[in-house]
Write a protein that binds this DNA or RNA. Structure first.
Length: 558
RNA sequence: UGGCUCAUGGUGUAACUGGUAACACGUCUGGUUUUGGUCCAGAAGAGUCUAGGUUCGAGCCCUAGUGAGCCAACCA
């Protein structure tokens, strides 16, 4: 975006923070952002918001954005997650400047911790976790000091060195910052800086047995990388005081210090965003892994067929503020349809077929009709579709009797076969249960689409899609719906969120009739099965399988 | 000894730092259309949580309430 364009545009409060600093003399060259995921899960739509915010500022101000893995807890993190995160960010269309790891700073962090000890601002505490928690007290009343709080510097230094050199077992002791056990902010009550974890780290392997906590690592990493603005979600608001305290108390050579600002995390109706719960769905096999098309993960949405531009547009429309919010699922659907309408190749596929015979169409005749691949964009070209006497149409595109509001086929009523002829319903054939097994109709031979004849130009209220009975492909289709039945599945902590799962969130439809040109589909393109919705190829084995991304908007009220 | 944050149509975000609320989604009309899609035109829907105060004038400032969220992991 250039300067002109950005002028009239309303800015969010993060924008305003940056701009007011810029106008206050902050050099634009010193702007630098970062996206700091922990590699302990797959990225989801909530992360996409954060990615769009940080990388968006990078674009807006032509500033570098680091990708930094907050890998301070080896028990939960691994390289599978790192790879997926990098892949997802790229797919969303963003590039980072430097690929960083908090673990790259472990040496520096250790030295700084020793410095704090020497300054009398950190100490080794031999108490166990429950004792420490007890002494921390509750928010409404002060805590009490640890009996180890006043250890002398040399003792602390020795102990800290021993922690590092594997003299203690996990839980035996921790390094704590010496701040204020009386602070109304719980995070200032001598927070833990290092704990002992005997677990191989995916990068530093077995080099370390002590690991810095989030609070001790995050701000310092920002400082090391010259991050100017450290944006995070609201729950870190109470951490800011500690973030600032650490940076204030390390020995600094730089004058520009990073600043943390917080925005509200994204919530979307009918889904969950908690990584822990998403993991639970994966591990309990409720879904088909992290990339199940019903998952709000980036990889799930990709497999579902939601294009990256749609996700970016969505994040843009969602806005940035400090208010708790629940975004209507319909907004994501809108964004998806908006880009797919312009980009999807159209095909004719009949999901729930019933046979249609054209009585007056010559037996054995076959003709190829011309169809547009995308009526929004002629550059998508045209294709040929096979047509003959016997076809399949959608079962609910026919009613024996109908009123004026029903535009589709019925006895004595005309309808257009998409790209083909105008037909009129004649009679039906039923089985002994009264279920229609075949529909008979007559066609107007002069009404072929594109023929330019007077008959072909006639206005008919309805148009339906169809597939040639004698020339088609057979595919499988996965019909997806929202994963949960209620708007806020994890709102009530008493009830297991999994009890709200929509048991119809996946309907597998086998042996669906599709026009034969579907043989030519590929994984890069997006498709619209006309009048049915947008679909994405999921697998291309002997049999094609498609995932329904989203239905077409439907305003018809019967 | 509790602290911090937030409060604008159904949803989300704006409102040039004081000049009687705008945009998007959704909803509802009508038109176009060989997708009941798209597109086009239009409508309804809030007087900005409450009560005071400052001011010629307040969604924006002040005070007090009310409601909601976050914080008591050796998670991030």
């Amino acid at each position: 975006m250039n300067e002109i364009e950005s002028v009239g545009k309303s800015e969010n409060f993060l924008d305003q923070i940056i701009r007011s600093e810029l106008s206050g003399g902050f050099d634009k060259k010193n702007l630098r952002f970062r996206f700091p995921p922990e590699p302990n899960g797959y990225l989801h739509i909530g992360h996409a918001k954060s990615i769009c915010i940080n990388f968006g500022f990078g674009k807006e101000f032509s500033s570098p954005v680091n990708l930094r893995f907050d890998d301070t807890n080896p028990e939960k993190e691994n390289t599978e997650f790192i790879d997926s995160i990098k892949n997802d960010i790229k797919w969303l269309g963003f590039d980072w400047d430097e690929e960083c790891y908090a673990s790259d700073y472990f040496d520096q962090l250790y030295d700084w911790a020793a410095h704090l000890i020497r300054e009398g601002k950190a100490y080794v505490d031999d108490q166990d976790q429950v004792k420490i928690a007890e002494q921390r007290g509750v928010p409404s009343s002060p805590g009490t000091n640890s009996p180890f709080r006043e250890r002398d510097v040399q003792t602390n230094l020795d102990l800290f060195h021993k922690m590092k050199t594997n003299h203690f077992k996990p839980g035996e002791c921790v390094l704590r910052a010496k701040i204020d056990m009386n602070s109304p902010n719980m995070h200032m009550r001598d927070p833990v800086m290092y704990r002992i974890i005997n677990h191989e780290h995916h990068r530093t392997k077995d080099h370390w047995v002590i690991y810095p906590t989030y609070d001790w690592a995050h701000g310092q990493s920002d400082y090391i990388e010259n991050i100017s603005h450290s944006f995070c979600t609201l729950e870190f608001e109470v951490h800011r005081e500690l973030y600032d305290w650490f940076i204030e108390n390390i020995p600094k050579k730089k004058k520009l210090l990073p600043k943390q600002s917080e925005f509200a995390r994204l919530n979307v109706s009918y889904t969950i965003m908690s990584k822990r719960k998403l993991l639970e769905l994966v591990e309990s096999n409720v879904v088909d892994g992290w990339s199940d098309p019903r998952m709000p993960t980036i990889s799930g949405m990709r497999r579902r067929g939601i294009p990256p531009d749609a996700i970016r547009n969505f994040c843009d429309k969602v806005g940035v503020s400090k208010r708790e919010n629940i975004i209507d699922f319909a907004l994501l659907d809108f964004c998806t349809r908006e880009v797919l309408n312009k980009t999807a190749y159209r095909l004719m596929v009949v999901l729930d077929p019933v046979e249609l015979e054209i009585i007056n169409y010559p037996e054995g005749k076959n003709e190829m009709l011309t169809a547009e691949n995308n009526q929004e964009d002629s550059s998508y070209g045209r294709r040929e579709v096979s047509f003959s006497k016997n076809l399949y149409i959608e079962r609910d595109d026919f009613k024996e009797e109908s009123n004026r509001k029903y535009f589709r086929l019925s006895i004595g009523k005309e309808v257009r076969l998409k790209n083909g002829y105008i037909i009129m319903g004649d009679k039906v054939e039923k089985d002994k249960n009264g279920v229609i097994t075949k529909i008979f109709c007559t066609y107007d031979p002069n009404s072929r689409s594109g023929s330019g004849t007077e008959e072909s130009l006639r206005k008919v209220k309805g148009t339906i899609h169809w597939v040639d009975k004698n020339n088609h492909e057979i595919i499988d289709v996965n019909l997806y719906d929202r994963l949960f039945k209620i708007q806020s599945p994890d709102e009530n902590k008493e009830v297991d969120f999994k009890s709200h799962i929509n048991e119809n969130s996946l309907i597998k439809v086998k042996n669906v009739y599709a026009e034969s040109s579907i043989k030519n589909v590929n994984f890069d393109n997006y498709y619209q099965f006309q009048r049915k919705g947008y679909f994405k190829l999921d697998s291309k084995n002997e049999k094609l399988t498609f995932n329904r991304t989203v239905t077409l908007r439907d305003t018809w009220k019967s």
